[in-house]
Nucleic acid binder design. Structure first.
Length: 273
DNA sequence: CTCCAGGCTTTAG
DNA sequence: CTAAAGCATGGA
């Protein structure tokens, strides 16, 4: 199945390179993107962005295409914050993805105190080593492994894939999710979800916010990492403060738009658009 | 060589 | 309670 969308609010580069997703690579005229056990090819001519996948419905939701990002940018600009205005203009084609919950949990456990290229490498090796091989006309690929598959390996295995000290976090969280599942998390309030996520090994406040935002669609979350901390100091005239307080400042300021705005700001700051 | 990356857990005060 | 040390790895 193939569908297209106004490229102004769906730019493959903005959507993929903004740091919310780790499984994609340049392919022909655009990118191949992977989520759970599914694959999609997206490319753009600057007017229309085309998505081609055997799981069209899944990726229609994945790319959040039912939502009007023109309106979101309009709302973002109503806050009258100059850096934000500029970020929205430069990253106009960005969209927040609706990603797989478990994949987000393990991906962002791996992301802590780490850089994006290395995160992508570790995740890629985990998929190759533990994930199921999926055949596809554009070329076979590996699915993101289930928690029970991840739980079969020990910490030394993940260290051998370059995960570093996060090896035990992956094992412990995999074992717990293999036992309990995660279906009980979906109905929790934002606050309850975060509290529950914090009880997993390797998940702290920032990682919990990323999982909530990208995996559970909780758009009122505002993850605070080193880049946002830098932004707070340099562009919001903030005084040095712990991340808890920076998070409170931004979520109170931006409310239900926090997640979108965080992503525009993060992307613009980090990639020097 | 040191510093940093989508920080968290553990320990010290 | 808050503050800081310790943690694996690879690139700048």
């Amino acid at each position: 199945m193939k569908f297209d969308y106004d490229a102004q609010y769906f730019n493959p580069r903005d959507v993929l390179e903004c740091g919310q997703v780790f499984r994609f690579y340049p392919y022909e005229q655009g990118y191949r993107v992977f989520s759970a056990d599914k694959e999609c090819y997206i490319y753009s001519d600057g007017v229309k962005t085309v998505a081609d996948s055997e799981d069209g419905d899944y990726f229609y939701n994945y790319f959040d295409l039912a939502r009007d990002y023109g309106k979101i940018i309009e709302k973002a600009k109503e806050f009258g914050v100059k850096v934000l205005d500029e970020a929205c203009d430069k990253a106009r084609g960005l969209r927040l993805l609706n990603q797989n919950e478990e994949e987000m949990i393990f991906s962002f456990i791996i992301s802590q105190n780490n850089n994006i290229p290395r995160i992508k490498g570790i995740i890629s090796r985990i998929c190759e080593g533990v994930g199921q091989n999926i055949s596809n006309p554009r070329g076979d690929f590996y699915a993101f492994p289930s928690a029970s598959a991840l739980a079969q390996k020990d910490a030394d295995y993940y260290k051998s894939l370059g995960a570093g000290y996060r090896d035990a976090f992956i094992c412990q969280t995999a074992r717990r999710i293999a036992d309990e599942g995660i279906s009980h998390l979906k109905d929790l309030s934002d606050c309850e979800l975060k509290r529950e996520l914090l009880s997993y090994r390797g998940i702290g406040p920032k990682v919990a916010d990323c999982i909530s935002l990208f995996g559970f669609g909780r758009r009122a979350c505002f993850p605070v990492d080193t880049w946002i901390e830098k932004l707070y100091l340099e562009d919001f005239c903030g005084q040095p403060a712990d991340r808890q307080k920076i998070n409170a400042y931004f979520t109170h300021l931006f409310g239900e738009y926090s997640g979108y705005i965080q992503q525009y700001l993060f992307y613009a700051k980090r990639s020097n658009l």
